[in-house]
C-alpha cells in the first residue's frame, strides 16, 4: 500500500464527510421549504435571504444547547446511540461511486472511497447496522415511548432487510457482480440498457424498502410524532439529537445515490452529462422522499408488517424465480 493511495483515500473520506454533513443540514432546509410550498405556507423566511441561513441558526442552536443525560438512563449506551446512526450512515458511503472518474491536474481521481467487489452487500449491511442507533437510543432511554419506538425499529429492521435483499437479488443475478461500478458499466449503453426496464418489480420493491430503511414518512413509525412523541429521540437534546438527524438525512442522500446506480443507469458512460444525470436522478429521489412526506399519511405498524410479509416478500420471491427461469432458458 503506497503512501499516495493512503493520502488520496484520506482526502476522499474527508471530502465525503464534509459534503454530506453540509448536505444533511441543507437537506433539512429543502424539506421545510418543499413541505411548506406543498402545504401553501412559506416555510423558513426570516433568517437570511429566503430563510437560507436558517440552517446555520439551527446548527448554532444544536451545538450550544446543553447536553442533558437524564437520570435512570443507561448513560454509556445512551451517549453512543446517536454516534452509531451518524457513523454507519457515512460508513455506507465508502462503497458508493458518487461520480465517474475524472482527471484533475493530470491525476485520475476515482470518486469512490473503497472499490470493494461486494459493494452492494456492504452498503446494505452497514445501513442495517444503522438501525442499531434508534434501537439502542430507545432501549437506553428509560422512557416508554422510546422503548415502543425501539421495538418498532427492531421489527422494521428484521422485516425490511428481507425485502431489500430479495428485491436486489434479481438484478444481481442479471449483472453477475456485487460491485456498483459493474452495475453501472452493465447499463452504460444508454437509456435502453437500464435495469429498470427488465426489473420493474425489483425497482419498486427496493424503492419501497428504502423508505422503511431510512424511516421516511409512509413508514415513519420509529419516531412517529403524533403517537410516540419523537420515539427514540424523546430524551435527547442538543447535538446528540442532531446526530440522529444528520444520520437520517445522510442515509436519504446515500440511498438516493444507490437506487439510480442499481436501476437507472448511474452515471452512464462517464461523460460530464452522465455525471450530471446521476446528480439529477439523486435529486429526484431525494425530492420524492419529501414529496411523499407531504402527500401520504403514515401506515399503522401492523399494516407495515402485513405489507412486508404478505405482499412485498412474496412478490420479491416470485420475481427472483421468474428472473432465474428467464435467464436459464
Amino acid at each position: 500500500m503506497d503512501t499516495a493511495y493512503l493520502i488520496e483515500t484520506i482526502i476522499k473520506v474527508v471530502v465525503v464527510l464534509l459534503i454530506f454533513s453540509a448536505l444533511a443540514g441543507i437537506g433539512t432546509y429543502f424539506e421545510r421549504k418543499v413541505l411548506a410550498f406543498m402545504q401553501r405556507r412559506l416555510g423558513p423566511m426570516n433568517v437570511g435571504p429566503f430563510g437560507l441561513l436558517q440552517v446555520a441558526a439551527d446548527g448554532i442552536k444544536l451545538f450550544t444547547k446543553e447536553d442533558i443525560i437524564p437520570t435512570n438512563v443507561v448513560a454509556k449506551v445512551f451517549k453512543l446511540a446517536p454516534v452509531i446512526t451518524a457513523a454507519t450512515a457515512f460508513m455506507a458511503a465508502a462503497a458508493i461511486p458518487f461520480l465517474p472518474e475524472f482527471t484533475l491536474f493530470g491525476y485520475t481521481v476515482h470518486p469512490i472511497v473503497a472499490d470493494i467487489n461486494i459493494g452492494i452487500l456492504y452498503i446494505l449491511g452497514i445501513m442495517g447496522v444503522g438501525l442499531y442507533g434508534p434501537l439502542l437510543g430507545g432501549m437506553a432511554s428509560a422512557n416508554k415511548f422510546s422503548l415502543l419506538s425501539a421495538a418498532r425499529g427492531a421489527a422494521v429492521f428484521i422485516s425490511y432487510e428481507v425485502v431489500t435483499g430479495l428485491s436486489i437479488l434479481a438484478p444481481i443475478m442479471m449483472v453477475g457482480s456485487l460491485s456498483l461500478i459493474d452495475f453501472n458499466n452493465y447499463q452504460a449503453g444508454g437509456v435502453g440498457d437500464w435495469i429498470i426496464w427488465s426489473q420493474p418489480v425489483a425497482f419498486v420493491l427496493f424503492w419501497i424498502a428504502a423508505f422503511a430503511e431510512t424511516g421516511r414518512t409512509p413508514f415513519h413509525l420509529i419516531a412517529n410524532d403524533h403517537e410516540i412523541i419523537d420515539g427514540f429521540g424523546t430524551e435527547y437534546s442538543g447535538m446528540r439529537w442532531g446526530l440522529f438527524f444528520i444520520g437520517e438525512y445522510a442515509n436519504m442522500f446515500f440511498i438516493s445515490f444507490v437506487i439510480p446506480l442499481i436501476f437507472l443507469g448511474g452515471y452512464g458512460d462517464g461523460s460530464l452529462l452522465g455525471a450530471l444525470g446521476l446528480l439529477g436522478k439523486m435529486a429526484f429521489f431525494f425530492f420524492f422522499f419529501l414529496w411523499t412526506r407531504a402527500a401520504w399519511p403514515d401506515v399503522r405498524p401492523d399494516q407495515l408488517m402485513w405489507l412486508c410479509w404478505k405482499v412485498l416478500m412474496p412478490l420479491a420471491v416470485v420475481n427472483i424465480v421468474i428472473t432465474g427461469l428467464v435467464m436459464m432458458f
Binding site: I118, G125, Y132, A151, I158
Partner: peptide
C-alpha cells in the same frame, strides 16, 4: 474474503437484533 465479511455483518447484525428484541 470480502464476501464472507459482508455476510458476517448482515447475518449477525440481524441475529443480535433478535436478541435485543
Amino acid at each position: 474474503a470480502d464476501f464472507l465479511g459482508a455476510v458476517q455483518i448482515i447475518v449477525y447484525s440481524g441475529a443480535v437484533m433478535a436478541l435485543y428484541a
